[in-house]
Simulated scan of single mutants.
Amino acid sequence: MTPEIQDRVAAISDAIRHLTVLTDQARMLRLRRANRVRTIYGSLAIEGNTLSEAQITAILEGRRVIAPPREVQEVKNALSAYDRFEIWQPEIEKDLLEAHRILMTGLIDEAGIYRHGGVGVMAGRQVIHMAPPAERVPQLMGDLFSWLTTTDAHPLIASSVFHYEFEFIHPFADGNGRMGRLWQSLILARWNPLFADIPVESLVFEHQNEYYRALQESTRLTDSAPFISFMLRMILAAVSVSVPQDAPQVSPQVSKLLTVIRGEMSREALQSVLGLSDRKSFRRRYLLPALADGLIEMTLPDKPNSRLQQYRLTDKGRQWLKQYGDG
């Protein structure tokens, strides 16, 4: 326990309390769905899956997606696994084996059972971690579950320790990374159900190199503190972006503009898709207010009058569209 770890535990706890008292159920349901997609996208992207959030959403809705069959299977498996969050207990070993079976069905032969051979973690051609021998895995995992059952550590700490030790043991032939992240989320969800839909994995994906460095540093020091500190930083960031903000005061005209922007579009293209012919009215009622609120931006901000000027959504605009748009 370092001062930094203690501060982050306190900050996450405060943020979760704020998120818990929100009562706008419709907004939260929409946010939960978006976060579930982000969670699965982040966790699978770390493992090399190339499907986008839009494609994962399509699979979630039962629509056909043209993509490599293995990657589609990975998404379907992950959706099935996260649907079982309310059933599994993080202290029960057979639940972890079932989760691995669901996550890896159709992907490997040893789905749902501990590995029978040696494994190592590679960085390119370099082995950065040799996992314990296969014959030791059942005992090591049994010890880890016994610790999880009896520890009085805060769930934020306990979940991070479990995650680190799980990755050190590397108990499965494949799927260890996604299982470690899944089980940390499950431990956290038993502390507060909101964690079932907080996209910690998407933040880990954005800081993937740091994730692996933190694992290596904890192994080098034989101290899980570096990994705990890293994960708490990711959890705090994920909780912070999951708190729905009050909706900006957006006019009907700006709302319409935000819903029609696709990538980068010129003024002429935007007017055309909106069915507007009056250039001055479009600029005054649609374009300028959206720019002023930071919901869209120019592709050439230093040349506002350029004939090549186009407009695109900002992060703020995309977030508004996710939470308050009709799509």
Rank of each mutant, 00 (worst) to 15 (best):
Y41G: 13
S146D: 15
G294H: 07
V127N: 06
A34C: 02
A99F: 10
A225H: 05
Q319E: 13
E297M: 08
L236Q: 14
S218T: 05
E217D: 15
I157V: 11
A54T: 09
E91L: 09
L232F: 03
S240R: 14
A123P: 00
R285L: 07
L44E: 12
R307V: 11
V161Q: 11
V200R: 02
G124F: 08
G120H: 13
G317T: 08
M298D: 13
R33W: 11
A173G: 14
Q249F: 12
L276V: 11
A26I: 04
I128Y: 00
T57W: 12
L215Q: 01
S202L: 05
T50I: 13
I66N: 15
A45N: 06
M122F: 13
L221E: 07
Q310P: 00
L288Q: 11
P132G: 04
E268D: 14
R267Y: 10
V241C: 11
V243C: 03
S224E: 10
G117N: 10
R262W: 11
A247K: 15
L79S: 07
I92H: 14
K94N: 15
F195Y: 04
V9S: 03
S13N: 06
E110R: 14
F162G: 01
E71K: 10
T105I: 09
Y114A: 08
S185R: 12
M234H: 00
E206H: 05
V121I: 14
Q253T: 08
N49A: 03
T20N: 15
P155S: 01
L156A: 00
M130N: 13
R181Q: 02
E210V: 00
S80W: 00
I46D: 01
Q208S: 06
V260R: 04
Q323D: 15
T39P: 08
Q310G: 09
N35F: 08
L148D: 00
H163V: 03
Q89I: 12
E86N: 12
S43Y: 04
R36N: 11
P226N: 02
S224I: 01
P69T: 04
A34Q: 07
L144C: 05
E297A: 11
F168E: 06
H100T: 08
Q55R: 10
S281K: 14
A214G: 00
Y164F: 09
D24F: 07
S159A: 13
G294L: 02
Q89L: 12
L148T: 01
L221V: 09
Y164K: 04
Y114R: 09
E47F: 04
Q208Y: 02
G117C: 05
L321E: 10
M1H: 09
Q126H: 10
Q245H: 15
L156G: 01
I56D: 07
A173P: 06
H163K: 03
I87H: 15
H18D: 15
G294K: 06
K94P: 08
I198G: 02
L287F: 00
G327P: 14
L291M: 09
F162M: 09
P155R: 01
Q184V: 01
I296A: 01
W320N: 04
F230T: 00
H170Y: 04
R267L: 14
R233E: 00
E93M: 13
I113H: 14
G294V: 02
F166Y: 10
A292K: 10
I113R: 15
R285W: 06
L188W: 05
T57S: 08
P3D: 04
Y324C: 02
G117T: 15
Q323C: 11
V204C: 00
K316W: 01
L44C: 06
T219F: 10
I5K: 01
F172C: 07
A11I: 06
R36E: 10
R220C: 02
